[in-house]
Simulated scan of single mutants.
Amino acid sequence: MSRPVLFFDSGLGGLTVLREARLLLPERRFVYVADDAGFPYGAWEEDALLTRLLSLFEVLLKAHDPEAVVIACNTAFTLAGAALRVRFPDTRFVGTVPAIKPAAERTQSGLISVLATPGTVRRAYTRDLIRSFADRCAVKLVGSEKLAICAEAFLKRQVVDEAVLRAEISPCFVTSDDGQTDIVVLACTHYPFLAGLFRKLAPWPVDWLDPAEAIARQLRRVVPDVPFDADAHFADQAVFTSGEVSPELARLLSGFGLKRPQSLKFF
């Protein structure tokens, strides 16, 4: 049996990337790890979160020996990506960063907003991306403490207050003498699950830029082909650091091809 690809996120948002990866890597099996005991990451202090991530990956890499790891979380990768590569030099890491470069290439008005967690907004990494790729654009960083939580609730078929969503996305919409915002970068993998509601609630149409497909393409570039084994996919699993996997959550995960939810108690 081939080595798996490990997906990592604070919660369920990385499933948006896993969905795309399955299309491009049909021969691979997957392990999806949700650090739901630490969710949400956006409000964590940087040193504490970095320590947690390094400790958690010591456990995960030994347990699963992955072919590659996708950090399907902007907050985690912009903070810990470099440190993870130094600590685990033999592991291929594919990161998730705000899609500022493609946004700058596509915008017509030059007005871009980046909708992210507060942690991603604070990162020097994010501001370096703006300086490197969007220095001729007006980029507004919008940090939300609520949207990732709303996305998790939406996935679990709980009621989501549209007034809350509208208030969270409204700062993204800017007008100036040159025009108005035409691209909003979804800089948290949870947010694409809410994209339909965002379109409904937006004051005008914009391109909601989801990086999931680009991340999956990068994964395909770095992971070698292996012979397809249909039986291997019965071993696909999800792991939750809270140690809690409800029947409802197990049913949700089965829709993403993750048929063996497990728990990993981690503090």
Rank of each mutant, 00 (worst) to 15 (best):
92 R>L: 12
109 S>L: 03
84 L>V: 11
96 T>N: 11
97 V>G: 11
82 A>T: 10
108 Q>H: 10
111 L>H: 15
102 P>T: 06
81 G>E: 07
114 V>T: 00
94 V>Q: 02
81 G>C: 09
96 T>P: 03
97 V>I: 13
113 S>I: 00
110 G>I: 06
108 Q>E: 13
107 T>Y: 03
94 V>I: 14
86 V>M: 07
97 V>C: 10
108 Q>V: 11
101 K>Y: 09
104 A>I: 03
91 T>C: 09
86 V>G: 06
101 K>R: 15
109 S>T: 15
94 V>R: 03
112 I>D: 01
114 V>C: 10
110 G>M: 04
110 G>F: 06
85 R>L: 02
113 S>A: 15
97 V>K: 10
105 E>F: 10
103 A>M: 09
98 P>M: 10
106 R>H: 14
108 Q>I: 04
99 A>M: 10
107 T>G: 07
90 D>Q: 14
92 R>N: 04
89 P>G: 12
103 A>Y: 09
101 K>L: 12
80 A>I: 01
102 P>A: 11
94 V>D: 01
111 L>T: 04
101 K>G: 10
104 A>P: 02
114 V>L: 03
82 A>F: 04
84 L>T: 05
107 T>S: 15
96 T>Q: 04
106 R>W: 14
86 V>Q: 15
91 T>H: 05
90 D>K: 14
100 I>P: 11
103 A>L: 09
112 I>Q: 06
104 A>G: 06
98 P>C: 12
84 L>R: 04
107 T>K: 04
99 A>G: 12
93 F>N: 02
101 K>N: 11
105 E>H: 09
107 T>R: 06
96 T>W: 01
85 R>E: 15
87 R>P: 05
95 G>A: 06
114 V>E: 00
85 R>F: 00
89 P>M: 09
85 R>G: 05
92 R>W: 01
111 L>Y: 10
112 I>W: 02
95 G>W: 01
91 T>G: 05
93 F>S: 09
108 Q>A: 14
97 V>M: 07
91 T>P: 00
103 A>E: 09
88 F>W: 08
87 R>N: 06
91 T>L: 02
108 Q>G: 13
97 V>L: 14
89 P>T: 05
93 F>I: 07
80 A>N: 08
90 D>F: 09
93 F>T: 09
80 A>M: 03
102 P>R: 07
84 L>S: 09
110 G>T: 05
98 P>K: 04
99 A>Q: 10
105 E>A: 14
